[in-house]
């Protein structure tokens, strides 16, 4: 393949953008394990800041994990069946409800949080509980779960699969767990990863909904950025990135896997570079 000057120009630009994405992350990670960032790496590497963060903020870690898993559980339990119903129903009521269900995606989290506080902020037991944040996270992430599953259901002929199963004598529950759930596993996994990732990093809603006793990791981060020294903020960010990393890797892996699956058995010739643009 001939590499034109335009090719190298584009490659250069892409690498530059990549550097823009990567450099600040690397700087932050370095700062988190550097003795004194002001002096630079020459001051030595240390895990002191990480330990300090763990001693100050460990409860935010646990709460974040707890919230993410609880949000996931709710989404799986109510979201997957709802997606099935929505994919199956042709009524205009179902379409309307689908629109309402995905509405939280189109409205800034801040507005949703404000609405929740106005409606339920007076209920003290709920307001001070972590469940209040859970409600916010579920409202915000449920659309992603439902849509991921609905998308997969629309891409397979699940009605006919279900008819096939029922022709073999399978009742509703059997069909649901033997045929529907396994065949939209890809969508469920995507939705689950999205739920976890969004919940772990959620700030817009959580900042409004949290109380001093219910601080999540992103809330703690904002706290640290405002009041702690740079090394602690960096170390805290580093811990957050480490928490996020498995989710990011899993998301990428899942994306590749589904792409490979979606490819037809007979491969169409891959479009080769034409050097256009």
């Amino acid at each position: 393949m001939k590499r034109t000057p335009s090719y190298y120009l584009q490659l250069g630009f892409t690498l530059l953008i990549c550097a823009f994405m990567l450099v600040p992350v690397l700087m932050s990670v370095t700062a988190g394990v550097t003795e004194n960032y002001f002096k630079g790496i020459s001051s030595g590497l240390t895990l002191r800041w990480v330990q300090e963060v763990l001693s100050i903020y460990s409860d935010t870690l646990w709460l974040t994990l707890k919230l993410a898993l609880a949000t996931l559980a709710v989404n799986l339990l109510v979201g997957v069946p709802a997606a099935y119903v929505l994919a199956r129903s042709k009524s205009s009521w179902a379409r309307l409800f689908e629109e309402i269900l995905v509405l939280p995606v189109a409205i800034p989290g801040l507005a949703i949080a404000l609405a929740l506080i106005i409606a339920y902020g007076g209920v003290q037991d709920l307001r001070t509980s972590w469940l209040f944040i859970l409600i916010g996270h579920v409202i915000y992430t449920l659309p992603f779960m439902v849509r991921a599953v609905v998308a997969v259901l629309h891409s397979i002929d699940f009605r006919q699969l279900e008819e096939g199963a029922s022709s073999l004598g399978a009742g509703f529950l059997r069909r649901f767990f033997d045929v529907i759930v396994p065949n939209c596993r890809g969508g469920i996994v995507s939705g689950a990863l999205m739920t976890l990732t969004l919940s772990v990093g959620e700030f817009n809603l959580t900042w409004m909904l949290h109380t001093p006793l219910t601080k999540t990791l992103p809330v703690g981060l904002a706290d640290a950025y405002a009041s702690m020294r740079l090394e602690i903020s960096s170390a805290y960010t580093l811990i957050f990135l480490v928490m996020l990393l498995p989710l990011l890797l899993a998301t990428q892996w899942n994306g590749h896997r589904r792409k490979a699956q979606a490819r037809p058995a007979v491969q169409t010739p891959a479009p080769v570079a034409k050097g256009v643009t």
Binding site: L161, A165, S167, A170, G171, R174, N183
Partner: peptide, 30 residues
């Protein structure tokens, strides 16, 4: 599911999550 019929569908409706043997066995399993 209660009529004991066998049905072959136009697009076969085979279960992609199961192997050939599992597909054939499904009715007996049920």
């Amino acid at each position: 599911e209660k009529r004991q019929v066998g049905m072959v569908f136009q697009s076969y409706a085979l279960f992609p999550n199961m192997s050939v043997a599992q597909n054939v066995a499904y009715g007996l399993k049920v």
